[in-house]
Computed example of a mutant assay.
Amino acid sequence: MADEILWQARLHPSRATSSLTDEEGDALYGAMRDVLRTSVRVAHVPPRDDWLTGHRDAPGRAPCPRCGTRLSFGRIAGRTTVWCPHCQPAPG
């Protein structure tokens, strides 16, 4: 769920929460509520076409459902994660 929440909030998975602006924090909170509500309703994270989770396990490097950029995969803080380098730019 973390990958989906961050993708919907357009935040890179390596961002520290202390670095978020109020607007980014609001986006993160809103995405978290939406993803959790939808997922609880169906008892899992749904593989919807308009969600990251609907594309992350596609063979090869799947395209971002929002912009079509190839998704990036890696380990951040000890966990495997996936993100869109265009929609979720790295901090810096």
Rank of each mutant, 00 (worst) to 15 (best):
G68K: 09
H86D: 04
C84T: 12
H86I: 02
A90S: 02
L71V: 06
C67I: 06
G60K: 12
G74I: 15
R79E: 07
D22Y: 12
I5Y: 02
T81Y: 11
E23V: 05
P47C: 00
P59D: 08
G78E: 04
E24N: 00
V42S: 11
D49G: 12
I76L: 10
G68Q: 07
P85K: 10
T38M: 15
R15Y: 12
A90M: 00
G92D: 00
C67G: 02
L28W: 11
R37E: 00
G68C: 08
A16M: 09
W83C: 01
V42W: 10
C67Y: 02
A31H: 01
P91T: 07
A2D: 14
L6Q: 02
W83L: 05
R70N: 06
Q8D: 05
H44R: 12
R56I: 01
T17Y: 04
R48A: 15
H55K: 09
L11N: 01
G74K: 14
P46A: 10
R79H: 06
A43F: 12
R75M: 12
A9I: 11
G92E: 03
G30V: 00
H44K: 12
S18H: 08
C64K: 07
S18C: 05
P13N: 01
P85F: 11
R33H: 13
A16L: 13
P63M: 07
A90T: 03
A90V: 01
E23H: 03
V42G: 08
A27E: 08
H12R: 05
A16R: 14
L11Y: 01
H55Q: 08
G74S: 14
G60C: 09
R41I: 08
T21A: 15
C87A: 02
P13C: 04
F73S: 05
T53C: 03
V40W: 10
W83S: 00
T21L: 15
R61A: 15
P89R: 13
P65V: 05
L71Q: 04
P91V: 09
Q8T: 00
T80M: 07
A58I: 13
V35F: 14
L11V: 03
L52D: 01
C87P: 03
D50Q: 12
S72F: 08
V42L: 13
G78V: 07
Q88W: 14
V45G: 07
D3N: 12
G25Q: 10
D26W: 14
T17P: 00
A43L: 15
M32S: 15
V45E: 06
S39T: 09
D34I: 11
W51Y: 11
P65N: 04
T69A: 06
T53K: 00
V40Y: 12
R75L: 11
R66D: 09
V40E: 13
A2W: 13
L71S: 02
L28T: 07
A77Y: 08
M1T: 04
A77Q: 05
A2L: 15
A31G: 02
A9E: 07
G74N: 15
C84M: 10
R10H: 06
T53E: 01
L28I: 08
D3F: 13
Q88M: 15
G30F: 01
A2M: 14
A9N: 07
C67K: 06
G25L: 08
P46E: 15
V35E: 13
